[in-house]
């Protein structure tokens, strides 16, 4: 890659620039800043779309009272039952059980607090679906003043 070919396709990096290795006009390798490359951006956005699709399916099942809101907050943090279990210090089967509305509603407040802390929400927020159904990280991005890292 030549230095003048280093891509500048800003889309996902929020104005942060990364470094590419490229060859200058004398054939020497130099570090060249880049704001992103389109194929990499596309692959990144595609990964987020897959997370959003999963969330959409989940929201429907939570509204139909077949899953607890915990399932949403787990998936919105890109976690599965196994990963969430290791964060809250439970067995996987216990977390799976709490994904059902009945067992979830019977949880003690301390347990709900542990889940809430691991999932970056308050105990009250854990009980329901948020107004904005984006994945947790992208929600953070929207609420932040533009251009601030």
């Amino acid at each position: 890659m030549l230095k003048k070919e280093v891509p500048q396709d800003q889309e996902v990096l929020d104005g942060v620039s990364e470094v590419f290795y490229a060859v200058d006009e004398n054939g020497r390798y130099v570090l060249a800043p880049s704001t992103g490359w389109e194929p990499a951006n596309l692959a990144n956005l595609q990964a987020w779309d897959a997370i959003r699709d999963e969330l959409t399916g989940m929201v429907a099942r939570i509204r139909a009272n077949r899953l607890s809101p915990l399932a949403y907050h787990m998936a919105a943090n890109q976690m599965d039952a196994k990963l969430l279990a290791s964060y809250v210090g439970l067995f996987v089967w216990q977390v799976r059980r709490h994904l059902k509305p009945g067992p979830f509603s019977r949880l003690k407040p301390e347990m709900k607090k542990r889940y809430a802390e691991a999932l970056l929400v308050t105990a009250a927020e854990l009980e329901q679906l948020p107004a904005d159904l984006s994945p947790t990280m992208l929600r953070i991005r929207k609420n932040r003043p533009a251009g601030k890292a």
């Binding site: 890659m1 280093v6 990096l13 990364e18 290795y21 990499a40 596309l42 692959a43 595609q46």
Partner: peptide
């Protein structure tokens, strides 16, 4: 999805291209 994943491993930040 599989293809996009390979592209990410190859090109996402941290690889130098």
């Amino acid at each position: 999805l599989h293809l996009g994943h390979i592209i990410r491993m190859q090109e996402e930040i941290g690889t130098g291209g």
